[in-house]
Write a protein that binds this DNA or RNA. Structure first.
Lengths: 347, 347
DNA sequence: TTGAAAGCGCTAACAG
DNA sequence: CTGTTAGCGCTTTCAA
């Protein structure tokens, strides 16, 4: 039953068909110059012994031609945002006949480095990275050896390569500005670790929007370093239970938004909220959640296209592509502060 | 700038360090029996020319030891259910020092076959499949050649391999039974294409639960072949607009549930609903959505463990592992039919 | 149209 | 402790 001893090789096929391995190679690769009769004998032998070409050996011998494999490193594949991004990369790769090796960094530089090194050891043609915080100089070697690299969602520290992302600061400004325009002056902030580039950009945008309205951020309303929905839920609950709670909150990514909805519970309708990132069912909440949305599939597809252009020999200067965000007005962002809130503010 | 001409090899390192390639090999692989002094010279040379081991060549030479790579094929990586499953597989693989090649079949047998063949050509040590409908005899060859295969979420047609899934029929019976227990007699069904094994099982469970209550399924309340949220939304809207609408609905996967919530809109609170699969924010809807939940991460982790056991030489008979489902009672499933509904039923 | 020889980058098995 | 030889499975090159 288990005859896993050795996989059939071209030699086996050649012997079976009574030809040389070269002829088998030609048939397997559909090269011309083989008598139909001979080809048929070879095909038969292939089927008979269940031969399948070993692409590892093939790639080794062909050398320069590449391995038709790209590596994709995301923060967390289980996060729907990165899952959608990954799917788009995968689709582009399939169109090009490439396969995708995937890994999650879990926002850990060591794990990112290990994954990248494992990818490079397998001689991937290119790398698409959602880089974590920290120096990426360790990628220089791979780059110098000709491995193409594209960053997506965030740029990599200390590394000038193609990057595709949205204008996170601008998106956060629009979100915060929207709340300000609806009369809010005490706006809470819920965010992940500010070391993450996107998070920092969004917090900057939040602060800049306040500044543009002549306000200064209130440290009591700001919560950094929230890693999970549960963190966000607890943070928003504490924020609301304080003696001077915010009248609105800016949630700086999808996890924060979903977590905040949980922490707010039924009182969600009494506080205004705008989130960064759209998420499933945002439009079915009560109230529906106003968000600044980006398109993860577009990010992934664009990054893949950039990468394949490089693999195909594009040697122009590294580019920064900025994709658009959209403010989706749905209800939660248009709740005005209550009269009581306003009074206590002016008091 | 672009010196991508040729990557440095062990020969290059050997020359640079003034040793033989064998010594370099020993150092690179941390094998004992190299003078610390020599090793240091080699390390230096490695760093100097930016050498990294070529695992393709290594795997080729080592033969039996495997490629430390597994292939994972899911229906759609962008679906949070499969994303969570994939992440769990990836985690198990990392613990084992393996990498994961990933692909989405899009519920298309041809694409599944192409992906599997590409995986096998790269000599993956094993395959984890969420198989689409249709004969999987094409996998026999790979199996006979010693490639290990594990199915997850669904079994593969015509192929006896390890399979890990939940009892879909039982879960659907519990969901439907729950609605029956709350007094419903006209229960709608929303489902994906019944060719898909899980879908068929769930529909069977739905019918069996009705039968156990002495009811026969009403074709007017049953909608098959719904592929997207939009399909489900439209289907539920039409169901509710009919002259004799259901008082409850069983949505046979997460997409159907989310879609139905969209199609129902604000009237969601007037019809009972139980879904198969949990989904983000299900507990934050009004009413919160009662579901029969399975654990995608557990499915993925278990499948990976099964696979690695096979790779490690487990040759016992193929096993079917059945993971548990949980009925999460949240509100939507406990809505009773209105008095008017009951009257029209008995009339 | 077909085949023989050489070698991709690496490591197992043996020498020294 | 270090090096030599051979060869993994394939394709390139050149000869028949």
């Amino acid at each position: 039953m288990e005859r896993a001893s050795r996989l059939p090789t071209m030699r086996d096929v050649a012997r079976q068909a009574g030809v040389s391995v070269m002829t088998v190679s030609r048939v397997v690769n559909g090269e011309p110059g083989v008598l139909p009769d001979t080809a048929a004998r070879v095909e038969l032998a292939i089927r008979a012994i269940g031969y399948q070409r070993n692409d590892m050996a093939r790639n080794l011998r062909r050398g320069a031609t590449g391995t038709q494999t790209v590596g994709l490193l995301v923060d967390d594949l289980a996060n729907p945002f990165f899952a959608a991004l990954a799917r788009a990369v995968e689709d582009q790769a399939r169109l090009r006949g490439s396969l995708v090796l995937i890994a999650s960094s879990g926002d850990d530089l060591r794990r990112e480095r290990e994954a990248v090194q494992a990818f490079c050891a397998r001689r991937v043609d290119g790398l698409i990275l959602v880089p974590v915080a920290g120096s990426h100089r360790f990628l220089r070697a791979a780059l110098d050896r000709g491995t193409k690299v594209v960053c997506v969602d965030r740029p990599a520290d200390q590394l000038r390569v193609d990057t595709v992302a949205v204008d996170n600061r601008d998106g956060a400004m629009r979100a915060t500005g929207h709340l300000l325009a609806h009369g809010h002056r005490r706006i809470g902030y819920l965010g992940d670790r500010p070391e993450i580039w996107t998070v920092k950009q969004r917090f900057t945008g939040f602060c800049d929007a306040l500044a543009a309205a002549g306000l200064t951020p209130d440290p009591n309303l700001i919560r950094h370093g929230l890693r999970t929905r549960e963190d966000a839920a607890a943070a928003v609950a504490r924020l609301m239970a304080a003696q001077d709670p915010p009248t609105a909150v800016f949630t700086s990514n999808d996890l924060m938004s979903v977590g905040a909805l949980g922490g707010l519970g039924p009182s969600a309708g009494r506080i205004a909220m705008v989130g960064f990132d759209d998420f499933a069912l945002a439009d079915r909440m009560t109230p529906a959640v106003t968000v600044v949305a980006q398109d993860p599939a577009a990010l992934g597809a664009t990054a893949a296209q950039l990468l394949f252009a490089r693999i195909d020999g594009d040697t122009s200067a590294p580019r920064d592509l900025v994709l658009l965000t959209r403010l989706l007005v749905r209800g939660s962002g248009e709740i005005a502060p209550t009269a009581a809130d306003r009074k206590s503010l002016t008091a």
